[in-house]
Each structure stands twice: as structure tokens, then as C-alpha cells.
Simulated assay, not measured.
Amino acid sequence: MNKLIYIADPMCSWCFGFAPELAKLQAAVAGKLQLELVMGGLRTGADAQALTPEFAQELAHHWQKVTATTEQSFNHDFLNQTNGFIYDTEPACRAVTLMGEAKPEHQLAYLFALQQGFYQQKLDITQPQVLADIANEWLDQSFFADLFDSEAIIEATKQDFEMSRMWQVFSYPTLVYSTGERMIMLSQGYAKCDAILEGIANIEAQLTQQPDDFEQ
């Protein structure tokens, strides 16, 4: 079965803005196209950043733009904290990767739950315990904790980051149509479900008529 590959990050504001459209897309392609998640790693390692007043102002500007475009609401009170918060997206990405390994059928729902927790409920999803609490609907917390710290999950998360960069995806959300042999860019940045479905139909029509026109 051909599939859609969704490259995202739980702490990417545009990915949060895209969440309702992605939910519609998932429902529309169910049984026709598999949806696979790849974590992009928006701010990890040396790119992780302390929440300074200047950075908070920059984030607030981005969040306002997302709201204006998508109508997704943000709790801006999160940006007023002074507890030394570090905007590091690796733990949340690792948690989504973990859910994909343990309970793949709930991975997207977990991603949505993390986004709502961070952007609307002011939860610090850089903290393993918070990530485990949110996952508790699907996974036992002690099982989650064991997997979260395992070398296998840490390495799988790194592989997602490397794959995203190998595909030259540096902005999120991104959707790629994969035939197994070909990788075809479907959308990059926020898009409406109807437009994406139209893009899928166009790709599939061209693959049927002129399969050699696409490059991997």
C-alpha cells in the first residue's frame, strides 16, 4: 500500500495549527493510504533554546500568526514563566517515536494530546513524567519510562531526525507521498485537507498515466 509520510514535531506551532486538517486527512484516506509519522527534531541538541523574554516574544508572534491562519488557540501564559524552561523538542519527539513502536495505532492521537497539553494546557512536555502522564491512556507509566530511556528508542528517534534531514525537510509540517520506490513532495507548511486530497488525486493520476515522470 502506498503511504503518506508526515514529518512533524510536537512542539512546532504550525504542526499544532495543522492538527485539525491532519485529523480530517487521516479519516479521508483511511483504508486507502497508510499514514506514517516521522519526527523532525525542530529544536534539539545545540539548537535547544532557553525561554528568554526575547525568545518568548518571537514565539508569541509565531503563535499569533498560526491562530490567524488556522483558528487554533494558544495559551500564551506559558510564555510568561521564569523557571528556566529550555525549548528542547527531543523528549517529546522521542515520546511520539516510543508510542509508534509500542502502540502505533495510537501514535497520532498521542501526538495530538501532546500538542494540546503544551499549547493549551501549559504542560511542560520536555519532562519525561509529563510525557508519561499524557501517554497513560494507552501505556502503563512504568513501561513507558523503561522504553523512554532505552537505547533503542533514543536511537530510533535520532534515525527519524537523520531521515528528515536526508530528505532535506527543514520546515514542518511536511507531507510526502511514498510509493515505496518514489518519494513525492505533497505539501510543505500549513495546508487545508481538501487541497491535500486534490494533490493526492493528481499524484495518483500522474503515477498511473506517466509513472516515469517522478523522481525519488
Rank of each mutant, 00 (worst) to 15 (best):
L79A: 05
A205I: 01
F118N: 01
R43D: 05
C93P: 00
A195L: 12
D133S: 12
P10K: 08
I200C: 07
Q209R: 10
Q129I: 11
A60M: 00
P104D: 08
P128S: 09
I153K: 04
Q72K: 13
Q168R: 12
G40R: 04
A23G: 00
A50H: 09
A48T: 03
L123R: 15
N136C: 10
S178C: 06
I125Q: 03
I86K: 13
I5E: 03
L37K: 00
H62M: 12
L79N: 07
A195N: 13
L51V: 06
G45P: 02
C193H: 11
N2K: 10
Q159H: 14
H76A: 13
M39H: 00
L111S: 06
T70I: 08
Q49H: 14
Q107R: 11
N2I: 04
D77P: 02
Q64I: 05
L147D: 09
L4G: 03
F112K: 11
W63I: 09
K122T: 13
Q81C: 09
V66I: 15
V176N: 05
E215C: 11
A145Q: 15
K103T: 04
D146H: 12
N202L: 14
G117A: 15
A30I: 03
S187G: 00
A113P: 08
E204C: 05
L139F: 08
H61S: 14
F16N: 03
Q81H: 10
Y172M: 10
G41E: 01
N75T: 01
Q206W: 09
D213I: 10
L79Q: 01
Y190M: 05
E21W: 00
G45Q: 03
K3L: 02
L79P: 00
S164I: 01
Q34N: 12
A48D: 02
L42C: 11
S150E: 08
H62L: 09
T157P: 01
K192I: 00
Q121C: 09
D77N: 14
V96A: 09
E71L: 12
K103S: 01
L59T: 02
G180V: 03
R165Y: 07
P128M: 10
D133L: 08
P104W: 10
A56Q: 06
S73A: 11
D149P: 01
A195Q: 12
S150G: 05
M1E: 06
N202Y: 14
T89H: 10
T174A: 10
T179Q: 07
A19M: 09
